[in-house]
């Protein structure tokens, strides 16, 4: 273990502790704001540590760093401006959009790592470029979950905003289409793992997962949308943890798993508070809770 790896690991440990304590403080109104700020400070630490580690260890080139800098500047500006200017009543749909892009980012990280590994093995001519299961399985899960949350959260935000009708949207054959997409996703996922790695099967998985996200949220009533946003939030946590496995980043594994679990508990509590069960919300088609389909 090099000194840099040691320092990075220590920084991740401190950052993770700050995330956990921050979430803990958010349980009561009096300390909630402090908790959020503590968690934000942990985030700054984790990001700086990752930047130093990646720059020193991998080097990279100026195009990659420029793409990163421009992306961070544009995304960060969009996030800060929309978060400041949004009307208080429109906050849930904005959170849903932030959740959508988080899932998309996790899927993009896995996709980039996959493409990089293919190119690397082609350059060195090392066999057919087999990717070990401990990496290929998280890549597949990450793209699947990340893409579902990306499209699902956009639809949920649309329902909250009123762009998409709040009433459950069910069309003839939607269940069959759902099953079909699930089968395609499973087949593409399995083929990505067992065949020599190719971007084609992973792309098919990506498209099928995007369709599943849309089909999953469309039949859900607008009144249930906040619970669904919370559930998709937990999904994104898991996608980020999977991305952490892919690139061997402990901060992402810890924070992702933390959000995945905490988000699930939160979803159950939100559903209970609204006198709904998560299962009946997901099965959907029951409207706003007072009618039987």
């Amino acid at each position: 273990m090099t000194a840099l790896e040691w320092v990075t690991g220590l920084a991740y440990l401190i950052a993770s502790t700050m995330f956990v304590v921050g979430l803990h403080l958010m349980r009561s109104p009096a300390s909630a704001r402090r908790g959020n700020l503590l968690s934000a400070a942990g985030m700054v630490l984790a990001i700086v540590a990752t930047f130093v580690y990646a720059a020193v260890t991998f080097g990279g080139n100026w195009i990659g760093w420029t793409a990163l800098a421009v992306g961070l500047a544009l995304g960060g500006a969009f996030g800060a401006i929309s978060a400041r200017q949004v009307k208080m009543t429109d906050i849930p749909q904005l959170v849903s959009m932030f959740n959508a892009v988080g899932g998309g980012a996790a899927a993009a990280v896995a996709f980039a790592d996959f493409v990089h590994r293919i190119a690397e093995s082609a350059a060195t001519g090392a066999g057919e470029g087999h990717i070990e299961l401990t990496v290929s399985i998280p890549i597949v899960l990450d793209v699947l979950i990340g893409a579902i949350t990306l499209s699902g959260s956009v639809i949920a935000a649309g329902k909250l905003q009123g762009i998409i009708p709040g009433k459950p949207i069910v069309f003839p054959g939607s269940r069959i289409l759902n099953v079909l997409m699930a089968l395609i996703a499973v087949a593409a996922g399995v083929l990505t793992i067992v065949l020599p790695p190719s971007a084609l099967t992973l792309s098919v998985l990506l498209v099928a997962a995007l369709a599943i996200g849309v089909l999953m949220v469309l039949p859900i009533g607008g009144a249930d949308a906040p619970v669904v946003v919370s559930l998709l939030n937990a999904f994104t946590g898991l996608a980020v943890a999977m991305a952490g496995f892919v690139i061997d980043n402990q901060a992402m594994i810890i924070a992702g798993a933390l959000v995945g679990a905490a988000g699930t508990i939160l979803t159950l509590q939100m559903a209970t508070a609204m006198n709904r069960s998560v299962l009946s919300i997901i099965i959907g088609g029951f409207g706003t809770g007072d009618t039987v389909a």
Binding site: A54, G60, G64, A105, A108, V109, A112, V240, A251
Partner: peptide
């Protein structure tokens, strides 16, 4: 953090 690593 993942975006930083894939940038590198």
């Amino acid at each position: 953090a993942g975006a930083i690593v894939i940038a590198a």
